[in-house]
Amino acid sequence: MTALLELRDLHAGYGQTRVLHGIDLTVDAGGVTALLGANGAGKTTTLRAVCGMVRTTGEVTLAGERIDNRATEDIARRGVAHVPDGRGTFMELTVEENFKLGAYVRKDREVTSDFEQMFGYFPRLRQRWKQQAGTLSGGEQQMLAIARALLLRPRLLLLDEPSFGLAPLIVQDIFGILRQVREAQGVGILIVEQNANLALDFADRAYLLETGRIVVSGPAQEIREDEQIRRSYLGY
């Protein structure tokens, strides 16, 4: 397997505050990597570092090309789609306009057929087509955020707590769709989740972050089955 995303000795922070202290992490092409850790560990910051939303030192490599300290919009144009915490949809605009913006940088002619594909994944979005995104339910907004990200036709999808604030049934739905997406599109995924069980079930690789350092890493299945790790870090 070749690496799609590689972080090497990645440091990041906000102003004077250092948050990440040298992170090494890999997402395989078409693979799913889970990033776990307590509140404030630096998970969101890691995703922001990948897409150039915070200043970093160290290496970020996407399919062999260094992308660290490039502008966020250039990283997006290289096929990195980010569903940030807080979702990153355009609340004031309609579902239709959010779709169009998701595909903003694409020049190919398959955009409309991809819209149909998104309706296949998320039929409720078709009914909300002309509605302002801010008026959607929380679950619908998360669906829209994922659809918006997929419409970039990304090579790498960054997901920040996609289950946050959603009812268990909707969470199941969304993870079911993420599995389909992974199969159908071969997109690599880096997912941050509070729900460790859910994430480890979905991922093939996992990392555990503690105050800006990786403390455990390995195949997701091994971590899931390791009593010791579960008790001391994941708390269940």
């Binding site: 966020t72 919009e73 789609a81 940030p84 355009f90 605009l93 913006l101 903003y104 918006r148």
Partner: peptide
């Protein structure tokens, strides 16, 4: 499309960067 991108950038700059605007 450009008009839409300009509106998006005005409403939400960080989300706009994430879609490549």
């Amino acid at each position: 499309k450009l008009g839409l991108a300009m509106r998006a950038a005005a409403f939400n700059a960080s989300s706009s960067r994430l879609v490549g605007i």
